[in-house]
Design a protein around this nucleic acid. Structure first.
Length: 448
DNA sequence: CGCATACGCGCC
DNA sequence: AAACGGCGCGTTTGCG
């Protein structure tokens, strides 16, 4: 059970996850307030039981193969040095490639690359982020190797080398899951952050191969399928989206079919990608500008698609408006479980701040309920594992990555145990639609 | 020299 | 220019 110190920290965070208020360190007072604000379920049924589970996860850690990391570090170093040479040659002089300021000077002053369409940063320098560099990729030969350099340097300096140093004498890496670190109810992971290990790039995959299951064990990765969109459909009670999930349709395809007013069979991959961006954008409160930027459309087209989206899924629009109005009246938003986030700026006369608060308002009940669900699943699952006397001996919960749980399971019970966990996760909460979990099994984190 | 900030970027 | 929600972290740069 949690210490009073820990309980106080949790209670204060639940009362005010942005930590903007000055709350007393008096547990009695805090718990009284929790009751008054309808936060008992969050406090007593979710966060308090979760605390010891996170402690166990930290203690057990995840096994990492130092030899693989060492090998990757050497390989990356070779690539990075070669890219540096090439880039300095094209620039005509060496400079600090990791300095956006210096890089900007080289690109746009020394080499005089056309800066049309490249935004300036607040320091006045032209942006050199991946979006900007991609835009000028065809304007000079130096750009492509810079993009390559960025990717490789990032993976080496942020992941490979620090992770190597964090392997303990037990051969494992022990992240800290922070229970009071987010404003929406999610967990975060620190020192190292194991919630943002690369997965998409080729080198990211190689890195994940360094995370390995203990001898005689395998990894089981279970991730909720489209959990935030399912939560959105359910919370907003959008019949069209609910039906799609009930029928286990490809949700992005269905969205494209609606937005483009064509049958599902006629949806192209490009249309589906656009619909996918829209679906995620809706959860984040994306406007026409951001949608245009990420989709490659112009502003007018982007606006048109957003409008079409909300006419097809009118209940979602209505829910968003209702949620923002409630926030204006009460000063907070909440998940179906009562988890709250106070939005001080929702009535701000500063439109930028008010609009920012509105986006937080429509995001938090979705992201927060998804977080509630996976936390409930963690608690229910661990209870079962303890009953079966598997906990820590034959099964360890290693990581929680927002919509995914990574377990290490002894091979003799692997299949039956993984299926059991899957059922627990799917049954953790009842929405208007089924909750689906994907299961993957492998000996390392790249192969799950 | 340490610290805060800006920038950039990995993940969900 | 930016305004797409939630995080943690490495490097550079400017300041005290």
């Amino acid at each position: 059970m949690a210490t009073d110190r820990k309980k106080i920290e949790l209670a204060k965070w639940i009362l005010d996850p942005d930590k903007a208020q000055q709350l007393p360190d008096d547990l009695g007072l805090l718990e009284k307030k929790i009751g008054e604000l309808g936060l008992d379920k969050i406090y007593r049924e979710i966060e308090l039981p979760l605390a010891p589970i996170l402690e166990d996860m930290k203690k057990i850690g995840i096994k990492a193969d130092a030899r693989i990391l060492d090998k990757l570090s050497k390989e990356l170093n070779k690539e990075i040095v070669e890219l540096e040479k090439k880039i300095y040659g094209l620039a005509g002089l060496p400079f600090n490639l990791n300095s956006p300021k210096q890089l900007s000077e080289i690109l746009f002053e020394k080499l005089k690359i056309d800066s049309a369409g490249i935004p300036r940063r607040k320091t006045g320098a032209f942006s050199t982020d991946v979006e900007a560099l991609t835009k000028i990729k065809d304007r000079h030969l130096i750009v492509a190797p810079i993009l390559d350099y960025r990717e490789l340097f990032k993976i080496k300096s942020t992941y490979i080398d620090p992770l190597r140093e964090l392997i303990g004498r037990d051969g494992r890496i022990h992240t800290t899951f922070i229970q009071t670190g987010t404003s929406t109810g999610r967990l975060s992971s620190q020192n190292p952050n194991l919630q943002n290990i690369p997965i998409l790039s080729e080198w990211g995959k190689k890195l994940r191969e360094a995370f390995v299951a203990e001898q005689g064990f395998s990894f089981a990765a279970l991730d909720y399928s489209q959990i935030e969109l399912r939560v959105l459909a359910s919370v907003a009670q959008d019949e069209k989206m609910i039906e799609a999930f009930k029928n286990d349709l490809d949700i992005h395809k269905m969205t494209a079919s609606n937005v483009f007013n064509i049958p599902v069979e006629k949806v192209t991959p490009e249309m589906r990608q656009l619909a996918k961006t829209l679906n995620f954008g809706v959860i984040y409160g994306m406007g026409p500008d951001a949608f245009a930027r990420t989709s490659g459309l112009n502003r007018a087209e982007a606006s048109k698609f957003i409008k079409e989206y909300f006419s097809d899924f009118a209940d979602i629009k209505r829910w968003q408006e209702k949620t923002i109005n409630m926030a204006r009246q009460t000063g907070y938003v909440e998940t179906l479980n009562g988890r709250k986030r106070w939005l001080a700026n929702i009535m701000s006369p500063n439109r930028r701040l008010a609009a920012e608060a509105e986006r937080m308002a429509i995001n938090m009940p979705i992201q927060g309920l998804a977080a509630d669900i996976i936390k409930i699943a963690m608690i229910k699952t661990m209870e079962i594992l303890k009953q079966k006397n598997w906990h820590m001996k034959k099964i360890r919960l290693l990581l929680s990555i927002h919509d995914e749980l990574l377990f290490e399971i002894e091979d003799d019970i692997l299949k039956q145990a993984a299926d059991l966990i899957k059922k627990e996760m799917e049954g953790a909460y009842t929405l208007a639609i089924p909750i689906k979990v994907n299961l993957a099994i492998g000996k390392n984190w790249a192969n799950v």
